[in-house]
Amino acid sequence: MQRKWTQKFLALSLGLVMLAGTPVLASPPLNQQLDQVRNQLNQKKAQEQQTKKVVKDYTQQLATINHSINQKTEQIKQLQGSLNVAVNRLEETKKDLAQAEERLAESNDQLKKRVKGMYQSGPVGYLEVLLNAGSFSDFTNRLEFLQRMVQSDKAIVDRITSEKQQIEEYKSALETRTRQIASMKNEQEYVKETLAQAQSEKEELLKEAKQDLKKTEAEIDRLEAQEEAILRQIALENAKKGGNYTGGYSAGRCRAIPVFLPPSATAFTPF
């Protein structure tokens, strides 16, 4: 009796074979169910591969956008540094210009004071100074003195005027450069904002694609379990009808489906 049950157990354990086609003794409804489930399973697996590709594409696009955002952030940082330097230089130039204007005003005042200092009677012109000469020699001396004074003051005024002009040109160039840097910075910030918006959209699309993939994988698991259940039911039906053992593998996970043999089946003697 014990030997008989041992033989039966060995026979049952070896009831695993590949399901090459439709089970021989299974009822048509079960075969139809199996075909239908496998068709759905194939469709879901194709959908799974497509969704995986979408996830991969979105992931790559998002990585590219993130890289671009990092680049723009660095560029904006550099531009901000350049803008700060330009603004500081501009402020310093404005101060230099104000000082040059003050020096120019002082030089003009000194010129007037020198002429006034020669004659305490009040403001006089160059012509009156010359006409008050007592002799031709005095006239010549006064003329020479006035010429030297005028040339000296004129040189000072010219130098300060030139300096002021240079500062004004430098100030104008700095203002132009400052506007350019500010414009470039604004453009980069706009591009960064656009990329951030695209990043947000891609993240949302990636999230949806991952959710779809998760649902598809869950549906594949469900269909594979259903396929396995149908295969077991087919095997059980075949066994009840007294046919030779048949079985197979689930198309989804290649799970072996055992088929129980009737007691009358010849036991297999192991090697």
Rank of each mutant, 00 (worst) to 15 (best):
L90S: 02
L195D: 11
P23T: 01
K214E: 14
R89P: 01
T93P: 00
K45D: 08
L205Q: 14
I65H: 07
E91A: 12
R255F: 15
Q32N: 07
Q43M: 14
D212Q: 14
K154H: 08
Q78W: 02
A98T: 05
Q211Y: 06
Q50H: 06
I65N: 05
Q36W: 09
K207C: 10
L223Y: 05
R3M: 06
S13K: 14
I230P: 02
D153Y: 03
P28G: 03
V24Y: 02
T64V: 10
A225M: 13
P29L: 09
L223V: 04
K112V: 15
Q151K: 11
W5T: 01
L261C: 05
E224Y: 09
K94W: 05
Q40T: 01
F271R: 15
K52P: 00
Q165E: 12
T178L: 07
G122C: 05
E201L: 05
K171N: 07
V129G: 03
Q40I: 00
K53G: 13
G248I: 01
K210A: 12
N141L: 13
V87F: 00
T64W: 05
T216R: 13
A63I: 10
M1V: 08
N88W: 01
Q49R: 10
G242F: 01
P23N: 03
T194Q: 10
Y245W: 08
T59G: 02
S162Y: 05
K116C: 10
V54S: 04
K4R: 08
E204H: 13
L83C: 03
K241E: 01
Y58S: 03
A182I: 08
G21W: 02
V54F: 00
M149V: 09
L41F: 03
A105W: 03
E169I: 12
V17S: 15
M149H: 08
K215D: 08
K207W: 14
S82M: 05
F9Q: 12
T140A: 08
L127F: 11
V24N: 06
A20T: 14
Q71T: 06
E228A: 15
L174K: 04
A251F: 09
N238F: 00
